[in-house]
């Protein structure tokens, strides 16, 4: 058994969290509330050190007065507490939305459309190796069929009947096989996380495993 009090605290809190698997109980409730409090406290420190100090306080100390503009805009969030000026909260929100949405349009077209169309194209190595299980022409064409049928599942402005029903059904098969693959892959990764936690409990805490 470990003689380090902190290891004991860590182990007991881990058990408090695990206890939720049985059902909600006072131990879990304590750990959950402690977790919330500590993590938000940590967030405050993180914001203070990584954002407030370098982006607000240091520039102001260096008399870079331009920082006052975003500061004033940010302060508009605080008008939430002033009923008459409550609507000013929309200004910083609008700035965030305008900035990110403007950039998002071409970025998304690049990453989710053009790159994906390019990835579905036939290349020369596929033609020279028709039956290769990963990079052959047959595989390329099968991916094309999968992509086209999956897209058809997301067709909204027509009832899924006839050809559209047929292709969207094939699409959903592809989707489900794909999801199964992700599921299986992630299961293996998560099991390794559990093993790591068990190792801590049995090695560092009760020294059952040496």
């Amino acid at each position: 058994m470990s003689t380090n009090i902190w290891v004991w605290i860590a182990a007991l809190l881990s058990l408090c969290i695990f206890s939720y698997l049985y059902k909600d109980n006072p131990a879990f409730r304590f750990a959950e509330h402690l977790f919330t409090g500590l993590s938000v406290g940590y967030l405050i420190v993180l914001y203070w050190n990584n954002y407030a100090l370098p982006y607000i306080i240091t520039p102001l100390a260096d008399k870079r007065w331009i920082t006052l503009i975003p500061m004033l805009i940010g302060m508009m969030y605080l008008f939430r507490f002033v009923p008459k000026l409550n609507h000013l909260i929309l200004i910083p929100i609008a700035i965030s939305l305008g900035f990110w949405n403007g950039m998002s349009i071409p970025l998304t077209i690049e990453a989710d459309v053009l790159k994906q169309v390019q990835g579905t194209m036939i290349n020369t190595s596929m033609l020279s190796n028709i039956w290769h299980p990963q990079n052959g022409l047959a595989v390329g064409l099968m991916v094309l069929v999968g992509v086209i049928s999956t897209i058809s599942y997301f067709y909204f402005s027509r009832e899924h009947k006839g050809v559209l029903r047929f292709s969207s059904n094939i699409g959903i098969w592809f989707v489900m096989i794909g999801f199964g693959a992700t599921f299986g892959y992630t299961v293996m990764a998560r099991v390794s996380l559990l093993i790591a936690r068990m190792q801590f409990l049995f090695t560092d805490w009760i020294h059952l495993i040496k």
Partner: peptide
């Protein structure tokens, strides 16, 4: 093969839709 073919095709098909949906929302 599952990872490279049906999985890849499905993800790509979903991404097209997501891309269009995101662009339209923006």
């Amino acid at each position: 093969w599952i990872m490279m073919v049906p999985n890849m095709a499905a993800k790509r098909g979903i991404l097209f839709g997501v891309g269009l949906g995101m662009t339209a929302t923006s």
